[in-house]
Amino acid sequence: MKVQEFTKGLVKKNPVLVLALGLCPTLAITTRVENALGMAFSFAFVLIFSNLLISAIKGFIPKDVRIPTFIVIIASFVTIIDLFIHGYSPSLYEQLGIFLPLITVNCIILGRAEAFASKRPLGETLLDTAGMSAGFALIIVLISGIREFFGTGGIVIFGHQFLPFILSSPATGMILPPGAFLVMGILLAMLKKMGVV
C-alpha cells in the first residue's frame, strides 16, 4: 500500500486535468461554488463506496458481464445519494438537477472501477478513489470559484458571503456554458505552460 495511490489523483493523474474524464459535470455544474461542493461530495460518496464494493466482490463478478455489474452497483449508490440530497437539501437538489443521477454514467467512476478497483485490493482502492475524489473536487471547486466570482461579482457559499461583491459589472457570460469552456481551457493551458500537468 503506497501513499502515491492517493497523491497521484491530485495533480499527476488528475481525473479532469490529465485524464480529461468527467467533463460533463465539470462544465455543467460549476456555475456556483456551492453546487461544486455538493457535486464533489456526491461524487466522492459514489466513487469511494461503489469502487470499494466492486473491489470486495471482484472475485464473484463474471468477466463477460462486469460492466453491467459495475453500473448496477454505481447506480445503487447514486440512488442513495440522490434520495439523501433530495431529502436534506432540496435547493441543492434543484441546482444539480439531472447531473446528480448522471453520476451513474460518469466516466471517472466507471474508469476507476474498470482500471483499478476490479484488479486491486480494498486498501489501495480506498486510497485511489479518495485521491481521485479529492482531485475532482479540487478542480471543480477552483473552476466554479473563478466562474462565480467573475460571473456574479462575489462568492456566496450556503448563505455565507465568502467573498464580497467587488465587481460592479460582473461578466454574466462566465456562468453561462461558454464561460465553463473558457475557464477550463485557459486553466488547462496555463497549467500546461507552467509544467504542472
Binding site: S169, A171, T172, G173, M174, L176, P178, G179, L182
Partner: peptide, 10 residues
C-alpha cells in the same frame, strides 16, 4: 464575441 457573451446588456 467575448464582450457580447460577458456583458450582453452593455
Amino acid at each position: 464575441a467575448f464582450l457580447t457573451l460577458s456583458w450582453p446588456a452593455l
